[in-house]
């Protein structure tokens, strides 16, 4: 073999070896990165699951507190009043029984309403839109608020995360009832491109928005939205009402 031919052979072999070595090196390094990436993903997933469990427990705790407050402040008071009516020696017997009966009926109604509010299965079976509409119906029945609901006909697929979203809606409505001093509550639900957007607005006193996650309540809502794979946007100014939009 002459000199140039052998040089070409050696050169080509060297180049081939280097190139194949480069590709093998790439595959090995890629596999290492892939393993690290999978580990990171797993740890993120477990952290997320942990956060979810903590949040669910927080929601439960909050619900227990609300139930306890409701039983103590409302149902307990009504039942105590009924007991007083029945034990009052000054009142004539049939009137006392009649009054006590009315109070007991109110207590039963309140327990039923409380049970409906807490029922998770109902939200899962009815879907988030139907449950929200029922919530609005309950608000209408109080006759304290002018309630307006607007929605188009597209219903989102039921998901586990909808329980969290429904609890968020309940909390927003409760906050309006307790703190907003509003006379009108407006709900707008629409679905565009598979994204359901739910806006709850009121004409109440509103609040100053220093930062988007101001206050524990707002931070809680934002965290829950994150867990439910949803986004939440607060829009409020002192004296100009509040508008909260959840997209899921």
């Amino acid at each position: 073999m002459n000199n140039q031919v052998s040089t070409i052979f050696f050169g080509a072999t060297a180049i081939f070896t280097v190139l194949v070595f480069f590709i093998i090196l790439f595959v090995v390094y890629y596999k290492q990165r892939q393993r690290a990436h999978l580990l990171e993903k797993k740890s993120l997933q477990s952290a997320f699951e942990q956060e979810k469990i903590i949040s669910v427990m927080e929601i439960q705790e909050q619900t227990f507190n609300e139930v306890s407050r409701e039983i103590h402040d409302n149902i307990g008071q009504v039942l105590s009043l009924a007991r007083m009516q029945l034990n009052n020696p000054n009142q004539s017997h049939p009137e006392a029984i009649q009054h006590a009966d009315e109070l007991l009926e109110q207590a039963i109604r309140d327990i039923r309403s409380l049970s409906h509010t807490l029922n998770t299965y109902k939200v899962q079976s009815m879907g988030i839109i139907e449950s929200t509409m029922q919530l609005v119906e309950q608000l209408k029945n109080t006759r304290q608020f002018n309630t307006i609901i607007e929605f188009d006909n597209v219903y989102p697929e039921p998901k586990d995360s909808h329980i969290i979203i429904y609890r968020m809606i309940q909390e927003i409505v409760n906050n309006i009832i307790k703190h907003s001093k509003a006379s009108e509550i407006k709900l707008n639900i629409q679905t565009r491109n598979d994204i359901t957007s739910l806006t709850i607005s009121d004409n109440g006193v509103g609040f100053k928005q220093a930062s988007p996650h101001q206050g524990i309540g707002m931070r809680n809502l934002a965290e829950r939205a994150k867990l439910a794979n949803a986004s939440i946007e607060f829009n409020s100014n002192s004296g100009n009402g509040t508008s909260i939009q959840i997209k899921f």
Binding site: N2, Q4, V5, T7, I8, F9
Partner: peptide
């Protein structure tokens, strides 16, 4: 750079 025809053919 190759001058020999045999080397050119190999290349």
């Amino acid at each position: 750079q190759i001058s020999e025809s045999a080397a050119k053919n190999t290349a």
